[in-house]
Design a protein around this nucleic acid. Structure first.
Lengths: 189, 189
DNA sequence: TCTGACTAGTCACATTCTTGAGTAGGGAGA
DNA sequence: TCTCCCTACTCAAGAATGTGACTAGTCAGA
């Protein structure tokens, strides 16, 4: 039931089309929720029916028309209610971790490769998020921005995302190194 | 489709009943996958039908009987195949992060409280995982264990879990502090 | 000029996950 | 003795997620 709240939270700052929202769910919003475009379109439709967002058609010349959505007062109230309700614990679900768990009982070559790919992806995402953070805080330094910035919500979740990606990168690299070394050691026996 | 592989990976080391597995999915296995008992029982039944695990009935006197499962060769082969296939990217999904995203547009009091609760939970989980790690590596120190230990898969995923929980705790505490200070500052205006 | 990528969506189906309830005996503590 | 918690599982129903395919015009580069 929280996709709707993730959508509402993402729409707080600005109007977005479903398409733009889908992009946001790939970058900034992905730090706290992940969803495919189809889900977003469906959720926006539902939210509009329930009056939590309103959409307006924007006619475009050279591109397909689009619908821009914004949160209504009822939507804000719903978010308020959600914020006060108890949260479900977060959890990791990761194919790659499953593979690592099995690592010394199945072949490691493919897993090492995937760890290195993942590390590279995490590093790239880190840079992207670091750039996004710089952009969000403008000229101010972080401490000052967090004290007196207008809108810090997205910044805070990006911080979490950045920490996660860096941690993930480090772990992937370390594990890949460990598995590699073990492979060498065993070959020598 | 990866719950099945998480189950297989969790069963690699030992025989477990559905009930025991459910506990493992609350502690160690939770570092890479999360599932409710009902899902596990259902998955074990399916896996048995497909010949990837075998179960044997254990009759108990003072407690209900139970079925212990172990991975078959076909199951190991399936894991092997899975390890070689490309992984889906991991992602976070967290109610609390959604609330933080909305933080300066809705009331923060409840969110601050939840952040502190969550920090405490993450700290507790960290200690639990640290203890589990100590137990897994026995007398050896980490580096040595990772070089020459028999079975390091579970250790490696626990390391990830520990890093995640610590990171999460730190973030929660920091964000709670930031939101608190802003509340004070604004009250003064 | 052809190809592929981008904008902006929609539809239908399948799988997975969550919620809630129920069964049933044993042991521990008030 | 009564109540609650622990072991050990099962069933059903519904909500949430994911997969795959399809439409259709625009624009950039080979």
């Amino acid at each position: 039931m929280a996709l709707r709240h993730a959508v509402l939270a993402a729409l707080l700052d600005d109007e977005y089309s479903g398409y733009q929202l889908a992009k946001a769910f790939d970058i900034g919003v992905a730090n706290f929720w992940h969803a495919l475009p189809q889900q977003l379109y469906a959720e926006l439709t539902k939210l509009e029916k329930e009056g939590l967002v309103t959409g307006r058609e924007v006619v475009q010349e050279t591109r397909p028309n689009k619908r821009l959505f914004r949160v209504t007062d009822a939507g804000r109230a719903e978010l308020e209610r959600f914020a006060a309700a108890p949260s479900k614990p977060s959890f990791i679900r990761d194919d790659l971790l499953v593979k690592v768990q099995a690592a010394d009982r199945v072949g490691t070559a493919a897993v090492i490769e995937q760890l290195e790919e993942r590390a590279a992806a995490a590093a790239a995402k880190s840079e992207l998020l670091a750039a996004l953070l710089r952009q969000l805080r403008g000229d101010a330094d972080e401490e000052e921005f967090l004290r007196s910035g207008e809108r810090i919500g997205p910044y805070l979740t990006c911080l979490r995302g950045l920490a996660f990606e860096r941690e993930h990168r480090d772990w992937c690299l370390r594990i890949a190194a460990v598995l590699k070394e073990r492979r060498t050691t065993r070959a020598e026996r």
